[in-house]
């Protein structure tokens, strides 16, 4: 029917480097917001949580490689 996708709307995704830089800016903006609102003391918690998130991300990647990797933990 009329649902063929014209070339014009095929997107050009941003590169990995650009995305990481953008994430860095977002983290900076979040820190700025918390400092502005007097909640700077939340930053250590967020850093710990982010490290946990990275750890969980790594665990997920390993899980994809071998679902039963948990047995070595």
């Amino acid at each position: 029917m009329t649902t063929k996708v014209p070339v014009r709307s095929v997107f050009t995704p941003a590169s990995w480097g650009q995305r990481m830089a953008e994430r860095g800016r977002t983290a900076g903006e979040l820190a700025g917001l918390l400092i502005r609102n007097g909640r700077w003391w939340l930053l250590p918690m967020l850093i710990i949580m982010s490290l946990t998130a990275v750890l969980l991300g790594v665990v997920h990647v390993i899980e994809y490689a071998a679902p039963f990797v948990y047995t070595v933990f």
């Binding site: 946990t52 750890l55 969980l56 665990v59 997920h60 899980e63 679902p67 039963f68 948990y70 933990f73």
Partner: peptide, 18 residues
């Protein structure tokens, strides 16, 4: 299927960590 299994275990593990 493999990923589903991995995801499930990953979910449990991340729950524990959190």
């Amino acid at each position: 299927s493999w990923r589903r299994a991995g995801k499930r275990i990953g979910n449990v593990l991340s729950w524990c960590v959190l």
